[in-house]
Simulated scan of single mutants.
Amino acid sequence: MSSNIKRRIVVISGPSGVGKGSINSVLRKDKHLSLEYSVSMTTREPRNGEIDGVHYFFVTNEEFESAIANHELIEHAQFVGNYYGTPRKYVEQQLQNGKNVILEIEVDGATQVIKNEKDVLSIFLMPPTLQELANRLQGRQSETPEVIKQRLDKALLEVPLKHTYQYVVENDTVENAVAKITDILEKENAAQSDGPTVFDRLKVMMGNLVENNYMFFVENWEMNVKILRDNGVITTEEFNDFDAKEKMINILTARLYHRVLAHGEFSDLLDRDFVENQVQRLMFKINFFSIEQKFEE
């Protein structure tokens, strides 16, 4: 096996009931993706057909808490009264064996992995609608209405976190979602490349554009705001009470979005909401909003 082959953790996450398991079961059959499923640990009761050690490691609360205390988990979370977590030893063994490891985990756990682990590819699965998510949860026929409501309430808090992931994929059908994720994995060249990924190159492009515009506006702040007014980009009313945050986000989002669409390798990875989110994150990173936001002529 070539020494420059990169193996990585692939996080596939999203609200409960979005279809993570169905999609992962199909992805794992594609041998050229070299994917290995990470079996999670949980304290919940097995559902019909679930096998210990295959679908989950089913353990007691005491066993799970011991694993936490001994730092044996990459991530863990507690939801509707049960623990869920990813055993570290198994994941590390699979990476060493040349496999890309899929983590099919809840959003709380995914946030920990994205923050703490190196070289993680993160994908957020979106339901087409909240009603469809409710239909899928009810279709399981394995949980009470109270638990289903808890899961839906949590989904409302989780969906806004989608832009902390590298990719967002809508699971309208398993076939479509699998095709999109397969395309992402191939474009990222997850099983082959040690070089910068598509997402890495995109972040560099975004960062350069935001930073360049930051310098343009800040170095000659008053003059440049007047130029915006004189060119009709902002109105006289906006000029007199200029909101740098909102206007700059709108301007840079438009520029970035069109720049992204001009690059064939980026055009099918993003939507405008994602670009706007990245603009805000980058502007905070370079401390754009510390500058004076209002002045009078």
Rank of each mutant, 00 (worst) to 15 (best):
D172W: 05
V147Y: 00
A179R: 12
D200M: 08
Y167A: 03
D200T: 08
N212F: 01
K203Y: 12
S142Q: 15
M206E: 11
I184S: 05
T144R: 14
Y167Q: 04
L157T: 15
E146R: 12
N176Q: 09
T173N: 03
R201S: 13
I184W: 08
G195K: 11
E158R: 02
D153H: 04
M215I: 05
A155L: 05
L202I: 12
V174H: 05
V198K: 11
A177N: 05
Q141C: 05
E175V: 05
P196E: 10
N176M: 02
A191Q: 07
L152P: 12
P145L: 11
D153V: 01
I184V: 11
E158D: 14
R201Y: 12
V147H: 06
E170Y: 12
T144H: 08
R140P: 15
M206L: 14
H163P: 08
M206A: 12
D200N: 15
E146T: 09
F199I: 15
E143I: 10
D194G: 13
A155D: 02
E175H: 09
E186K: 09
P196G: 02
E188N: 05
T164E: 15
Y165T: 10
E211F: 15
A177K: 10
E170I: 08
P145D: 11
Q192H: 13
Q166V: 01
Q141D: 14
D172I: 10
T144W: 07
V198P: 00
K203D: 15
N213I: 01
D194P: 15
N176L: 01
V178Y: 03
E158C: 07
Q192Y: 11
Q141A: 14
T182I: 15
Y214T: 11
A179Q: 12
T173E: 04
Q166C: 04
G195N: 07
R140W: 04
A191M: 02
L137N: 08
N212S: 14
E175T: 08
H163L: 03
V198Q: 13
E132H: 06
S142I: 07
P160Y: 07
D194S: 13
Q150V: 02
A134E: 12
A179C: 03
V169M: 01
Q150G: 00
V174T: 05
E170R: 12
G207A: 08
L133D: 03
V169G: 02
E158H: 05
I181S: 03
A134N: 07
T173P: 06
A155P: 00
Y167I: 04
K149W: 01
